[in-house]
């Protein structure tokens, strides 16, 4: 089945990014497809590459790189929400990209299931 995932909150501040990651891993393990992950609201902070989380905790940014680069999942931060919060092209987490809200509409239409973590 084709899943689309929306993340609405910033990493670490809320558990949304963690739950989304565990959900995506479990879905991939079961042979499902992730059409796209879309970051909106403060969720765009997930794409901020200048963050340096402490070494004794999980690195949420690296998880997105793992899913985006190694697993080939399309991971998009909303451009309008990113601009508001200082997330810029060229300064984003490897394996993610910045694009418009149309990417959310597209994945909503294409996927069998849209699931939002906020």
């Amino acid at each position: 089945m084709k899943f689309a995932v929306q993340v609405l909150e910033a990493p670490y501040n809320n558990q949304a990014s963690d739950t989304a990651y565990h959900f995506i891993k479990a879905a991939l393990d079961k042979g499902h497809t992730i059409v796209r992950v879309f970051f909106y609201h403060n969720g765009v902070v997930n794409a901020n590459n200048s963050a340096e989380p402490p070494n004794d905790d999980r690195n949420i940014y690296k998880r997105w790189t793992e899913l985006g680069k190694e697993k080939g999942i399309d991971i998009v931060a909303c451009i309008a929400a990113s601009k508001r919060r200082g997330i810029k092209e060229g300064q984003i987490v490897e394996g993610t990209r910045i694009s418009g809200l149309g990417q959310l509409a597209d994945m909503t239409i294409e996927a069998d299931r849209l699931i939002t973590f906020g």
Binding site: M1, F3, L8, A16, H22, F23, K25, A26, A27, D29, K30, H32, R113, L114, I115, T116, F117, G118
Partner: peptide
């Protein structure tokens, strides 16, 4: 349910998230 069971629930039904 664990994460795998979570995925099964979403596969079975469409999901709305009351965030």
């Amino acid at each position: 349910v664990d994460y795998s069971g979570f995925v099964d629930l979403v596969e079975k039904d469409k999901v709305h998230s009351w965030v």
